[in-house]
Design a protein around this nucleic acid. Structure first.
Lengths: 198, 198
DNA sequence: GGAAGGAGAGAACGAGCATTCTCTCCATCG
DNA sequence: CGATGGAGAGAATGCTCGTTCTCTCCTTCC
């Protein structure tokens, strides 16, 4: 028998691939069983209902997505470069063969009206993403409004890339972000941190 | 007996309210029958399958949405004002009590992976919207890239407004659009049309 | 008036699916 | 060795839903 931890991982991996790739309602629990190789009984022991599996899928994806983004962007030398790197990371993501847009926007569109848990998880994900961009913006000594504007560009790029099937919106968004970044005045309220600039 | 035209209108009205408000898969044909008051037999005579009703719903919504947007934006005095008015219109839309994001992004997230017809309709809608912004941008004598950037802002505002339940993203997107508009140089390739400017 | 045809209401059918149950098997422990 | 208990496979259950069918009734046309 495989360990409960391994079973949980296999289930979450299968659920993520299937839910993200085909939509949540299009995937039955039976299919998650076959894809994960974990028996239905065990599946229900670990996740007592499909709704709980959906929440687990979304929660794990939220953490991983933001970690990968932050790992990429935070490795840049300056806050300005980190901001622009966000859009480079989006471009890489859009180019992945199984890219199908934002899992949270998709599940919100599919279930947000009928499941308040899904709606709330999607809201929390977007809020965390906005907060991250706000931090980068503040670190660059730019006004908070710039963070919101950058987030809207990124959000629009994700949706547009998903529907058109092109990674190009990431480059377009980056170009727009550069204009906004250069046009934004230094933030009046908070001193710019002394991170070195090339 | 009500006329076939009236029956079709009632069905499409009911389908739009229900599909948009709750998601397509969450609404059964039986519910569309009760909401429209048209018998199931007649419903299937006019729309031979749920898939065809979905397509009819999306097609009609595409036309009406773009007409309303254009009617609002085109009534402005200058192309620049038309561009900014797009975001004012979005703000009005976001404030409607039943606003739940872009019907096309939502249906793409829900069915795009399993229905190529839905995916294609969503793509066509976004493309038409991009084209409209490209026209406004060209009329303002600005480079084509500005049109793409504005479209990404609008797209991001729609998604963000839907998930957060706030109309504020429209104002944020408008502010960003104003910056991009003012920063964009006159288009080199095409002469600015002689529409009068205040 | 009477036949015919179409309309509506809703039952019926068949598939899909979330969830539970059964049965068999194997490992562990006395 | 034999009993116990948990595991897996997958059948069973009950519900939802897309689609079709039936039955009754009304209208229309001769």
């Amino acid at each position: 028998m495989i360990s409960p931890e391994t079973a949980e991982l296999r289930i979450l991996d299968a659920a993520e691939t299937l839910f993200y790739g085909r939509g949540i309602q299009a995937v039955g629990m039976d299919e998650i069983r076959s894809a994960s190789g974990v028996s239905l009984k065990r599946l229900y022991q670990l996740f007592p209902s499909k709704g709980e599996l959906i929440q687990a899928y979304l929660r794990r994806r939220d953490v991983r997505w933001r970690q990968k983004l932050a790992a990429y962007a935070d490795s840049q030398a300056t806050p300005e470069e980190s901001i622009l790197a966000v859009f480079d990371w989006l471009h890489e993501w859009f180019g992945e063969p199984d890219f199908r847009g934002c899992a949270f926007s998709n599940s919100f569109g599919e279930l947000g009206a009928t499941s308040s848990a899904v709606a709330e998880t999607a809201r929390a994900h977007k809020e965390a993403f906005f907060r991250y961009l706000a931090e980068l913006t503040a670190a660059a000594g730019k006004p908070a409004s710039l963070g919101d504007h950058l987030a809207l560009l990124a959000e629009g790029a994700i949706t547009t890339a998903a529907i058109t099937g092109s990674a190009e919106p990431a480059h377009q968004a980056k170009a727009a972000a550069r204009v906004l970044l250069e046009a934004a005045p230094p933030s009046p309220s908070r001193a710019q941190p002394s991170r070195s600039r090339a």
